[in-house]
Design a protein around this nucleic acid. Sequence first.
DNA 1: TAGCCCAGTACCGTTGAAGTAACCAGGTGC
DNA 2: GCACCTGGTTACTTCAACGGTACTGGGCTA
Lengths: 124, 124
Amino acid sequence: MNQPLPADLFHDPDCSDRAQPIRVGGKWTAVVLRCLEDGRPRRFSELRVPLHWITPKVLTETLRTMERDGFLTRTAYDENPPRVEYALTALGRSLIDPLDAACAWARAHVPEITEARTAYAQGG
Amino acid sequence: MNQPLPADLFHDPDCSDRAQPIRVGGKWTAVVLRCLEDGRPRRFSELRVPLHWITPKVLTETLRTMERDGFLTRTAYDENPPRVEYALTALGRSLIDPLDAACAWARAHVPEITEARTAYAQGG
DNA sequence: TAGCCCAGTACCGTTGAAGTAACCAGGTGC
DNA sequence: GCACCTGGTTACTTCAACGGTACTGGGCTA
């Protein structure tokens, strides 16, 4: 794990919770987008850090799905130990805008939702 | 069923498929938002039409969740036969903007995703 | 008195996403 | 000969979302 990323810098709590009404892809897709949005390719184990030590199986699934949909590229280098790098494509970068919109909405309105849930739970 | 709504007017195929990368709420939340965005309250069975005859159980679940989160109000009238009306709150209306953004993104980029999936399936 | 109307509820099953734990290969260093 | 590195895979389990069928209640109409 050379130079681990500062974990919570990329891990916007407004975008990752299943309870949020707007979701981009699977549970981890938005976080992967945030990790890669600066354009620098990152390695498998580098991605695990900001993703809170997500298990390799789940990360593999997430990355394969995003690769299949054309959101990122996977480049394997024939070295030892093996090195694989993931980077966003143009299509992947195009998701950043609606993701920002969703995050902005969440930041502005999640307190209202919390309030509404509390009132609902009390009022029956 | 007095004056059934024109079904597919509200049922934007770009926003309803589980395969779409941006999702607002559950599978049916976006469609309910579309049904109610003109501001006119609608009845339970009126909502079932544009939702492709969704079963009452699933519609109840969707509406209860949206009510709990403060996206819509439920008003029951003490009449016979019973009448219940659903209408968006201000918070619910505030979701329309990011929903439009998500739909716009989908309309612009879904063909690319389809293409990427085909290429991925063929290229291995 | 039989059935219809509306707005659900009860019960049950299926599906898919997510998570855990264990294991693997090929090469390096001790 | 053994552990360690990276980048995974495999098998198994758990959980929530989604869906179908059947049924309810209270007043109304035929």
